[in-house]
Structure formats: C-alpha cells, structure tokens
C-alpha cells in the first residue's frame, strides 16, 4: 500500500496475459497479476472459474497456452512441478497431494528425504524429530509423526499439507482452499499461520470461498469468472458487496 518508498520491493511473481485451454475448453483467458514479497493476494471466483488451473500453471503442473511468467525478475518456463519447487514455490493443492499409506514424516519430506552415512540410509530419526518440532510449532494436533496419513482426520491431513508447504517455501506459497475441511478453531490457526508468512517475506496466493476469510487475510483480491479476470481490488478499498457482484456478474 505504501508505494512511496524508494526501495520498491521487486515482484516475486509476474503473470502476463496468461491463457490456458484444454483442448477446446478455455480455462483461463488473459490473466495478469503481480505478486510482491510479503504480500497476500486472494483469488476468488465460483466453482469452475479457473482458480485451481491458475495455481497449477504457476506451480509448473500445467504450461500456459500463451503468456509469460516471470519469477524473481526472470522469465521462467517451468517444465514440471519439480522445477517450480526448486525455485522456492510451495503449494497446498486442493486434493492435498499426500501419500495416504505413508507416515506423516515421510509426507513432510516427500521427495526431500534426508539420508545419513556412507550407504545413504534414510535418516528416519532426524525426519521424525523435525516433523514433530514442526507440527508442534504450527500446533497441528496429530497423534505422532509416525502416524499413517490415512488414519488422520480431514483437518489433520490439511494441517500436514499446510505445514509441509509453509515449511519448505522460500519465495511463494500457493494455497488452494487451505481451510476447506477445517473447524473454526483450526481455521483461525491456519489464518494466523498464513498471516505470519508475511513476516517471512513470502508472497502468498490463496484461493478461498470464504469472503470473511479473504477480507481478514488479504492485501488484494483478484476475481475470476469463467476463466476471465474480472478485476483486482485493494482489500481496504473494497467491500463484500462489490466482490460478490464481481464474482457473480450481477
């Protein structure tokens, strides 16, 4: 909001004229957005508006049909999610992307397993200890780091996915309906956590269907309707009525 400062924070993410179609179906039409470090932008829109698709484009799961993505000032062309992840982007996907039969700690370190010794054995002790520390810090109440994901409640699963993403993120966190399965208290906890990402100077893009939540958390709100970018508003300069009418088109 304070654009007077000389040292303007650089855009972490810049999307320019992103377009994505699946076969004949246009999912995203001409989408542009800048995201600064320490900024939280909310992405809202009705079901099927293209929100998840946009997140997957940023995280490298999909490549845009046309348009450019710049990350940290450089144009990027992520071939897959691995590359985006290596650049410091973490995602909480709508389906959480957890391996259900594996323990919590193995999910926390999925694709980043720690090893020890000359034989590169999995360092389970270390991974378990770090996971326990992490879930304690974030107040995710799970029985133990060794619990199998399948035995957790929906909210606990979501907690694990959020803890994983926020722990590893270096630059940008993408959250696709992170509180969809959560109770009141848990939602409050996640919102506190998301707000705290600002202090770590991370950029956050959060999808939510709860306008209350969006207004509590975000600096700016971006509205999508059937793949079209309807507009971006500064949260303090708009209200729910305006956002609702932008979402619904009436």
């Amino acid at each position: 909001m304070n654009s007077q400062t000389v040292d303007v924070p650089q855009d972490v993410l810049r999307l320019e004229n992103i377009h994505k179609s699946f076969g004949g179906v246009v999912a995203i039409e001409d989408f542009s957005l800048d995201l600064k470090a320490g900024e939280i932008v909310a992405l809202v829109g009705d079901n099927g508006a293209g929100k998840s698709t946009l997140i997957k484009i940023i995280s490298g799961v999909y490549t845009p049909t046309t348009g450019t993505i710049s990350f940290d000032g450089d144009e990027v062309n992520f071939k897959d999610a691995t590359q985006a992840r290596a650049s410091g982007i973490e995602v909480v996907y709508q389906d959480l992307a957890l391996a259900d039969e594996q323990a919590v700690y193995m999910n926390m370190f999925l694709g980043r397993e720690q090893t020890r010794g000359p034989l590169f054995q999995l360092d389970r002790k270390k991974m378990i200890a770090e996971t326990e520390q992490l879930v304690e810090d974030l107040d995710v109440r799970i029985p133990s780091a060794r619990t199998t994901i399948r035995n957790l409640s929906g909210g606990q699963r979501q907690g694990v996915a959020i803890a994983r993403a926020t722990h590893w993120a270096k630059k940008l966190v993408l959250l696709d309906e992170p509180t969809a399965a959560l109770g009141v208290a848990e939602t409050a906890k996640v919102e506190k956590l998301v707000a705290s990402l600002k202090e770590r100077d991370l950029a956050v893009l959060i999808i939510s269907h709860s306008l209350d939540q969006v207004f509590r958390l975000s600096d700016r709100i971006c509205v999508l309707r059937r793949g079209q970018q309807i507009g971006i508003r500064e949260t303090v300069k708009t209200d729910k009525n305006e956002i609702v009418s932008m979402i619904t088109g009436v």
């Binding site: 992307a97 957890l98 694709g111 980043r112």
Partner: peptide, 10 residues
C-alpha cells in the same frame, strides 16, 4: 501410493 503427489513432490 499417490503418483500425482509423488510427481509434484519432485
């Protein structure tokens, strides 16, 4: 367990 989760995890 979950090939998609494995894939997006690198």
């Amino acid at each position: 367990d979950n090939p998609r989760a494995a894939q997006v995890s690198g």
